[in-house]
Nucleic acid binder design. Structure first.
Lengths: 194, 194
DNA sequence: ACGGCCATGTAATCAGTTACATGATTCA
DNA sequence: TGAATCATGTAACTGATTACATGGCCGT
């Protein structure tokens, strides 16, 4: 069966909380859900065009002095129906493609120190992400949205925080295990120059 | 900059531990790393063709009675070099696209019970995955591989286990929070027929 | 003057899945 | 005989990113 196009529904979902331009949508995706979703402008603009043709959205051109022209899209009744129908469908499981784990899996083709380097890079990135979460959580509370919308926003964010913590835990464990392995004299290969 | 083709390196990595056919590769991807990687035959066969042209692999046709002809690929010195060069590069961060979280984020367009249904579906799937991990972990020990290869195999697997646990924790928390919200009389909408 | 942001869009390319096409063997 | 597995490949299509193209405004 053909896969459904999620970009369309991500856009419709955003338009549910008010009309926006393509450019606005891109910013909202990044500011609100970059944690688990991303769309490029190269997808957003064509998708908006198709949604327009199908009458899932309507457009109004807004001119404001001192700014370029903007095409502001508003979801229609027909669009809302389509969006709710999609919401009802079970979510498709994600397909993982994790390059770091692939490299770790092939780790025996490297020196242990090289594997450690890779994991430490992930660890550094995850620590950065971790420090962002507190910031995001505070920001939700400053947004003008209903308690219900805040609840779901918080839940989506907390999912990211849990995964982030899990990755950090794994990094520590993996680093320990690799060091333990590398220090066993029996298992070291050539290069005994230490 | 152009993205690098990871399929090629996933294949080369598999060939590092012995020659295989395209069909074998597909099975190995599924049995060993489906946890964080997947390749379809529609990608494997063309990729093998290109790797052959570039002299990263060599081919031998194997005929065994009672079985169709197989093309068995072996990594060359040149291929090993290319593989190690790729291993050295830092891994690119994964692009998340999580349809379930997208639906949860848009949860205020549904009844809380519908959001709960989605999360419970994820929970059921993750519980299934959880029960698979013990099985996989036992299997690693039965495989004919060096302690080093087993270590990295175990680490790649344990990453999945940590993420799985994190998702299950999140599911429980999310279910609780949504139920708490839905039971607050103030925040319920129409449909007071209970 | 130049960089950065606002704003829209198209084209080229790559990545990836599914369907199509073929054909042998084995087992029920 | 018909389904399942082994085995290889191509074609069609969808998905997604990046580069290209255009142009105005604002601040330094």
């Amino acid at each position: 069966m053909p896969r459904i196009n999620r970009t369309r529904f991500a856009i419709l979902g955003m338009l549910m909380s008010g009309p926006r331009s393509g450019y606005d949508l891109k910013k909202d995706f990044e500011e609100q859900i970059s944690n688990f979703w991303s769309e490029s402008l190269g997808q957003i603009y064509p998708a908006l065009g198709r949604l327009k043709e199908e009458k899932f959205v309507s457009v109004k051109i807004k001119r404001e002095k001192g700014r370029p022209e903007r095409k502001v899209y508003r979801i229609t009744k027909k669009g809302e129906k389509a969006f709710r129908d999609w919401l009802d469908l079970p979510a498709e499981p994600i397909r993982w493609r994790n390059e770091l784990l692939l490299k770790v899996f092939f780790g025996s083709a490297m020196e242990p120190t090289d594997v450690l380097r890779h994991i430490e890079q992930l660890q550094a990135a995850e620590l950065k992400t971790q420090s962002l979460y507190q910031h995001y959580e505070n920001e939700i509370e400053t947004r003008d949205a209903s308690p219900e919308r805040r609840l779901y926003w918080r839940l989506a964010l907390s999912s990211g925080r849990h995964i982030n913590e899990a990755r950090l835990t794994w990094c520590s464990e993996a680093i320990n295990e690799i060091k333990k392995f590398a220090n066993k004299p029996k298992s070291r290969k050539k290069k005994s120059d230490d």
